[in-house]
Write a protein that binds this DNA or RNA. Structure first.
Length: 874
RNA sequence: GCCCGGAUGGCGGAAUCGGUAGACGCGGGGGCCUCAAAAGCCCUUGCCCUUCGGGGCGUGCGGGUUCGAGUCCCGCUCCGGGCACCA
């Protein structure tokens, strides 16, 4: 398509200038107020996709807007460059993950620059840089020393075919390995954990103060899953295991956790998880076979299978142990079952089962023919199974007649008074398992010594780097474990032979503190200088995808708190991201646009044709930033429409002013115009006047200020689509203004002559400049180029202060008073905005249209809301 | 199953505090310019009826509150997302 200016040349020119002029490089001693705007650093998977474009368009808009408002905006960029795709590519093609990753980074970086997004590239960081690895390891050691990192056995997804551990996403829905197809089993391995649960309460409570989307906060609250209840003991009675323990040091007890102690009288059985340590003891010889089968099945099944739709809602799998427990409330002995719907990892791994008030217990009780005793009176007409709501207690001894809430309290008091249990808070949140049996990640800086045990690698020997000469074989162990040169080492303490930890860290570790490193990326003594980080932190605006709503954002919050507590981030605020914005997804045919779905529409196609500004404008204009974008058959046309708008701005701000070259002299020059407005190119039109502004010039000035006011307010409330609409509407205003000048002006030709209202040059210049100023953060290349044409070589629109609207000019002179009769609009009258209620009513009743509708009827009531509306009620 | 979102013209969307529904754009129709096309410019465009003055209907569905509801309340339908045996 023919364009009004050379889009590609202009965009390249400015991308180089912004870099060469260091416009967006910011240091901690900058006198301007600091702001920190950050887009989530990307995994480098190749050239930017539309999701990136959207993300960086929003971020760049903020950076440029905040800069024009006089702030020193920290805008860094980096790459989350460790991760599985590079390693999988290595297994497939033999290319080393580093060269593979570096190539992808180069592609992504190039396309981000081609977008016109500006960053302080001096601060660029990559997780796989040795300097970043080093401080990742330093942090790990600090957490270890503080007891926040620890080693424990944990069940993992184990593929017997590949002889390796799999991440959850590598296990298919049917419980098989995505690569070998083998059935994945669960296996206990020694793994490293971060003690995030120590911060569960703080992570939960401080959510309240964050300016984050409520949706994300809710997701985090649910993930943390705090629940208050009570833990207490059930005495085990009757036969226990093959051995009879009743002669020993007292009967064994089964400790259970419940949030519903008020339902104690309804306990008709108890359940332990298949992995519960007491299972052997509890199982009598007659039931051993069934119990063992169940346990074997549970051990085989991955967590995914065990908790998938196979189990949920269907018959509960379980087996009777042969043992009984005494319900302390009722004194009844109830059977103890083993069932896989009880998880060892939560609470005590054992429950008291109340089928009448718990849906899972109800399903199990039905399946196994166990009794059901209601302890809460369900509402009339309730026909379901378990009633989990509130109500009055029944069949509950000393709790009878109480409300559920009061009964809970009373029951807990009773349990504590009896000395059989205590109040307890449980969390769904588990500690963070960070070990990955992978090559392309940050090595865990620990050595295992026969005599000294776990020995941290001394800080002066960091970073521990993975060797390059490893073999990437399909279906083998981690390349590091097979590399004897890496694996075998000497103990830093006793110098005896020792082995390294051959695992690497979860890549979420890298992304949990990169925003801190960005503040002080040149520091070679510590991860970052807390004093420098304090200057920029917290991040004022964090922008990213909703897919990181839970893990990344929770881990980063945890890290910030932990780094402060281990002394690496003294004096920092305990929350890293003050405001968070999560953008919508790009969808196509109803599904997420992604590489794996093969439905990508590459941004490069648009950069090479309509240009970066038009593509950016599209992403701003298409809808609210938080909403998903449907990439439809019409999208290309809309993007072209954005290009047409930019052409129009070019004509309205450059060509119509007779300023088609940067060297053009001052604004009073009036060369022959190729203004492109009349369809008669090269026809000279002396349309300018420099007289006193006429009424319609004042109107244009008012419109200008209203536009600036509207755009400013819209940008601040993240309503970018309406900000763009306001710019477009203003371009229409300029167009109309010029057209009217043309018609009425002496040289206009096709209108009545003699009006003499030529375009008032000073007023028009203000209007055109204002449009370019507000477009500067949205379509930076066009705004910069047009500004330079208007103001001379070296003029920089992005160095201008953000325009401010004069409230006096923004205020409307007249407003439309709507007159309704019985709620239906019957008339509209232009009135002064300061009209009184009486005045408005008088005008309304005098309206011929109102009188016609009303006829002779007398209005029973008149509601007046001046100056907007009068409603005459008949 | 539970918890969040959402539903407005042919399409994307606007309506910021309960007060003119449909801003802005895409698409469509008509016109100007042109040898022609592209581009540009001008007019028009929710639906139905119309004697061309205007009238009626209209924000997923059914109720309600109100002088007045896209907006608030109750009950549904459909679509999207998150969590999913967490006791």
């Amino acid at each position: 398509m023919a364009r009004a200016y050379d889009v590609q040349a202009v965009e390249k020119k400015w991308q180089h200038l912004w870099s060469d002029e260091h416009t967006y490089e910011v240091d901690a001693d900058d006198p301007r107020p600091p702001k920190y705007v950050l887009c989530m650093y990307p995994y480098p998977s190749g050239p930017a996709h539309q999701g990136h474009v959207r993300n960086y368009t929003f971020g760049d808009l903020l950076v440029r807007h905040q800069t024009m408002k006089g702030n020193a905006v920290l805008s860094p960029f980096g790459f989350d460059s460790f991760g599985l795709p590079a390693e999988n590519a290595a297994i497939r093609t033999g290319e080393h993950p580093r060269s593979f990753t570096d190539a992808r980074i180069a592609e992504l970086k190039e396309s981000v620059i081609a977008l016109g997004a500006v960053y302080d590239w001096r601060r660029e960081l990559r997780s796989h840089d040795p300097s970043y690895i080093r401080f990742n390891q330093v942090i790990f050691l600090h957490l270890l020393e503080a007891g926040l990192a620890y080693r424990a056995k944990a069940p993992v997804n184990w593929c017997p075919g590949c002889q390796t551990v799999l991440a959850n996403e590598q296990v298919l829905a049917d419980g098989t390995c995505e690569r070998s197809g083998d059935l994945v089993t669960r296996r206990d391995l020694e793994q490293w954990f971060f003690r995030i649960t120590a911060y569960a309460d703080e992570l939960l409570e401080s959510l309240d103060d964050l300016e984050w989307p409520e949706r994300v906060k809710t997701m985090q609250r649910n993930w943390i899953g705090r629940s208050e209840g009570v833990e207490f003991d059930l005495k085990v009675v009757g036969t226990t295991g093959g051995r009879d323990d009743s002669a020993g040091s007292g009967a064994p007890v089964l400790r259970v956790f419940t949030t519903r102690p008020d339902t104690g009288f309804g306990v008709t059985y108890a359940v332990v998880a298949p992995e519960h340590p007491l299972v052997d003891l509890l199982t009598t010889p007659a039931h051993r076979k069934a119990v063992d089968e169940l346990r074997a099945r549970a051990a085989l099944a991955s967590e995914i299978e065990r908790t998938s739709s196979e189990g949920a809602g269907l018959a509960k799998r379980g087996a009777f142990t042969g043992s009984y427990a005494r319900n302390p409330f009722s004194g009844e002995d109830v059977p103890i079952y083993v069932a896989d719907y009880v998880l060892m990892g939560y609470g005590t791994g054992a429950i008291m089962a109340v089928p009448a008030e718990d849906e899972r217990d109800f399903a199990f009780a039905q399946e196994h023919g166990l009794p059901i005793i209601r302890t809460t009176d369900p509402p009339d007409g309730f026909e379901g199974g378990a009633w989990t709501g509130g109500g009055v207690k029944i069949n509950s001894g000393f709790l009878d007649g109480l409300d559920v809430v009061d009964a809970k309290d009373r029951a807990m008091e009773w349990i504590e008074a009896e000395g059989i249990g205590v109040r307890k808070v449980n969390y769904r949140l588990r500690d963070w398992l960070v070990s990955r049996q992978r090559y392309w990640g940050c090595p865990i800086p620990v050595v295992y010594c026969q005599s000294c045990g776990i020995v941290p690698v001394p800080e002066d020997q960091l970073p521990v780097l993975a060797p390059d000469d490893v073999e990437f074989l399909p279906g083998g162990e981690s390349p590091l474990a097979r590399h004897t040169g890496f694996r075998n080492t000497t103990c830093p303490k006793c110098a005896e032979p020792a082995v390294r930890d051959c695992d690497t860290m979860d890549t979420f570790v890298d992304s949990s503190w990169y925003f801190l490193r960005f503040c002080d990326p040149w520091n070679d003594r510590q991860p970052f200088d807390p004093a420098v980080a304090r200057h920029f932190m917290p991040v004022d605006q964090y922008i990213g995808g909703i897919e990181h709503a839970i893990l990344h954002l929770l881990y980063a919050r945890f890290f910030t708190k932990a780094l402060i507590d281990v002394g690496l981030a003294e004096g920092l605020g305990r929350e890293p991201f003050r405001r968070l914005f999560t953008q919508g997804m790009i969808r196509m045919d109803g599904t997420k646009m992604s590489k794996s779905k093969g439905n990508l529409v590459a941004p490069a196609k648009y950069l090479d044709t309509v240009g970066a500004d038009a593509l950016r404008l599209f992403h701003l204009f298409v809808g609210p930033p938080a909403d998903d974008v449907d990439w439809s058959s019409q999208t290309d046309e809309v993007i072209e429409g954005c290009g047409h708008f930019l052409d129009r701005v070019w004509r309205l701000t450059v060509e119509v002013s007779g300023l088609s070259r940067p060297e053009a002299p001052d604004g009073k020059a009036e060369p022959a115009l190729d203004h492109g407005l009349s369809g008669r190119p090269n026809e000279a039109l002396p349309i300018w006047s420099y007289d006193q502004p006429a009424a319609r010039d004042v109107d244009l000035l008012r419109e200008t200020h209203r536009m600036v006011d509207k755009v400013t307010r819209d940008l601040e409330r993240w309503s970018f689509n309406t900000a763009v609409a306001a710019c477009m509407a203003f371009a229409n205003t300029l167009q109309r203004y010029l057209r009217d000048s043309e018609r009425t002006g002496p040289g206009g030709g096709n209108g009545p002559s003699g009006g003499g209202e030529r375009a008032h040059r000073p007023t028009y210049d203000q209007a055109a400049d204002a449009l370019l100023l507000v477009l500067a953060p949205m379509t930076p290349h066009l705004a910069a180029e047009a500004w330079e044409h208007r103001h001379g070589a070296g003029a920089r629109v992005h160095a201008q202060p953000w325009p401010t609207a004069d409230p006096e000019l923004v205020r409307v002179q007249t407003t439309t008073l709507v007159i309704q009769v019985n709620g239906k609009v019957r008339d509209r009258i232009e009135v002064d905005p300061s009209i009184t209620e009486a005045g408005a009513v008088e005008l309304a009743l005098a309206s011929p249209k109102v009188m016609a509708v009303l006829g002779s009827a007398k209005p029973s009531r008149v509601v007046a809301r001046p100056p907007r509306l009068v409603n005459v009620v008949g």
